[in-house]
Design a protein around this nucleic acid. Structure first.
Lengths: 413, 413
DNA sequence: GCTCATTTTTTCGAGCTTCGAAAAAAAGAA
DNA sequence: TTCTTTTTTTCGAAGCTCGAAAAAATGAGC
């Protein structure tokens, strides 16, 4: 099953390693790269000379003298921002936002707009995406740049090949093939990623000691999503984008969930579920999807002031999350958790019940030491993760292979 | 983070590939190996000549003419049974069983015995294991063989390094370091694996099309365990052996579980839970661990004959399993399930409620197509998986590296 | 029984790759 | 100005895989 390593792959892999170590470090000298990768100095010298020659890396110009030590000073190497350009598109409920990002990860153009996703046909949706990208490409900052890849981050599940949005709360239509349509329009590879997975990628790229090998990002918003990094790699499901934490079962036969089933975690911890309970609505009732975020904030304010249905709503959300994390921890062991999204702003209301629930599970038995990070604004994370994903793919699939030599120029005789 | 590939690793990896492809196929010609691995014929020729010269592989003697085609006949290559010898030790509640297995995977000696695990101190437990191995090594069939590795399969969780049994239902003692003690006694590497993970390894080694890339093995016995193969690799947790499916939460605050918490799946689907309900005992009550398996069988017989508490007990077990699988499927997507252990003998009693529960979850929405395999006898699977694990480790860690040349013989001058 | 066709396996040289040692380069210290 | 120290490059050696060609081993056909 494991595919053999060809001799030619060796250089390719090691080139990818060098690129990725520079990407992670931002700037790195050849000596540092050698230390990180474990390759010899001579190999790094050879590879980095190639990469600089190909315009993928460059020696840093504004040499910070930094720690002025004795001996020949290190030459910092960095990514050449011109080496490639990617486009990210974030598609959420009633929101479409795009970014043009250079090879070093700097956004050079952006565009965002409201749209009523639920009312658009799949074709119209693709059309809007094309329009968004075209508008960005017309901006002067992008002039003259060739786009190398477009990567989506969408709410909902995607297929394993990351080309199709299988299901999404933003639209009644299933199985929307975003990749093929956009690829046809721009002639570059397109992949479709799950938004929560991109949050996890973003958190990994800004990894602290806390979030290193294994961690969990839970998106608390209208619905509940999750991104998982296990053993240093973003975990995606086996057939789909997976990680549907919000649809693990909390109370069998319980409250009605947007997905049509009952008792999902989301049916207790999603914004709509919190509002539903706070308003005193039936658990069999599904409100409209366009719940105003300010209503949740208002419920939170009431909950902080006095005991009542509002406070109880957050308590129930916390319990659902706590038991869900307990089940998750039973499967994969406890790991640091980052709560992302506007639900994280109500962490104070959620935490006590969540911790109590977690502590009463087998998986969370020793989890009282776990700290929770909160990150109320998810958009920057989704965009960052999406850009990192696109760039990493460029690193490993395109640039690692190297130029196919000038064989082409010679042959036609 | 990803470690670079050294030039020396190349041959090592490709040697491991050749060994593992022969192990998987049982017998394979050089041409077949080349096709499977993707390496060139010349490389395979070179590597297999080395491996045969080192006594790791051998050309098959009793050449089956097989399909008598035109041209030079293929020479089948197989594992040399003498190349290595491993010992497997299965440690379950009141049961200790060992096997000596040759390099080709054939058991050449075995020994099993009852013992009261709950009453033994950690030291006494190690002592019994040492005695078991010594008794096997004294058998004539094993005479003259050097043992290369000892691998445990134990009930309970192990640490990530697979050296310590962190917690087990078979003993009140926690954190029993089996590896260090046994390593000291026999001077060979020892690893400690979780029994359910070994079941998954065994099922993978006998993989059919059905169980290929992703599948789930659920052990239904006194407790509930799980082994998971994701993306072709056995999944183990991040800190521990993980996969504690039985301790995912089914009903928050529900029935008392052996683990001390409430509402775990095991507290409804474990043998003890089924018996507890059938007997009309309180859900707060924990019976002794040594429930006779015949009692469960008897409850099953009653359940099949008439409606009543007995039948309801299995129904409850099925519901707990169904909702648990639904949550699991939400996380990792649906995958084929094999039910293993004596609980699988009651599959007819469990199935309807399990399917109904599964169908009412988001993860199991499209899971009506899923078929369940049953495998009532878990011991052969645990032993097979344990042997495969030990041998695979030998393949990749010891033999792939090759002989360190005769450098040793020359140097002392 | 001999020759030819066919398939498998080995041999051999070419082309890469990585590595270690030594050399070269570039700075501070004296 | 010379010496030290550190980084980077150069160069030859050794190892690996690959493709082409040769060798080996057998059935088919006459």
């Amino acid at each position: 099953m494991p595919v053999a390593i060809r001799h030619d792959d060796l250089r390719k892999r090691n080139r990818a390693m060098v690129i990725s170590s520079v990407r992670r470090a931002g700037q790195a000298s050849r000596t540092e790269i050698a230390a990180v990768t474990g390759l010899s100095h001579s190999t790094i010298s050879s590879i980095s000379a190639d990469l600089i020659g190909e315009g993928i890396l460059q020696e840093t110009k504004d040499a910070e003298p930094a720690a002025t030590r004795r001996g020949r000073p290190q030459v910092a190497i960095e990514l050449n921002p011109e080496a490639a350009t990617v486009v990210t598109i974030v598609l959420l409920y009633n929101l479409l936002a795009g970014c043009v990002v250079d090879f070093a990860g700097t956004a050079i153009a952006g565009n965002a707009g409201k749209l009523t996703t639920a009312e658009l046909s799949p074709e119209a949706l693709v059309c809007r995406c094309v329009g968004l990208v075209e508008a960005m490409l017309a901006q002067p900052a992008v002039a003259g740049r060739r786009i190398d890849r477009i990567t989506f981050a969408v709410q909902g599940t995607t297929d394993a090949a990351r080309r199709v949005m299988l299901w999404s709360p933003i639209t009644p239509h299933g199985h929307i093939d975003l990749a093929t349509g956009i690829e046809a329009a721009f002639g570059v590879p397109v992949t479709v990623e799950n938004d929560c997975n991109m949050i996890a990628v973003a958190l990994q790229s800004t990894a602290t000691a806390r979030r290193h090998h294994d961690f969990i990002a839970v998106l608390l918003s209208h619905g509940i999503g999750m991104g998982l990094v296990l053993d240093g790699r973003p975990f995606t499901g086996t057939h789909t984008s997976g990680g549907e934490f919000g649809h693990m079962v909390y109370l069998p036969g319980g409250a009605l969930c947007r997905c049509g089933q009952r008792g999902c975690i989301e049916a207790y911890a999603g914004n709509y579920a919190i509002a539903r309970f706070a308003r005193g609505q039936s658990e069999d009732e599904l409100s409209a999807d366009d719940l105003d975020i300010r209503e949740i904030a208002a419920i939170g304010d009431v909950a902080r002031r006095s005991e009542g249905r509002e406070r109880e709503a957050f308590r129930r959300a916390g319990a659902a999350l706590g038991y869900g994390l307990g089940s998750l921890f039973a499967l994969i062991d406890p790991a640091p958790v980052t709560l992302v999204g506007d639900g994280a702003a109500a962490f104070d209301l959620i935490e006590p019940a969540m911790r109590a629930a977690l502590a009463s599970t087998a998986g969370g038995r020793h989890a009282d030491a776990i700290t929770f990070d909160t990150e109320p604004d998810e958009m920057p994370l989704i965009e960052l993760g999406c850009a990192m994903r696109a760039l990493t793919q460029i690193d490993q699939e395109v640039l690692a292979a190297g130029v196919p030599a000038q064989a082409e120029a010679v042959e036609p005789a």
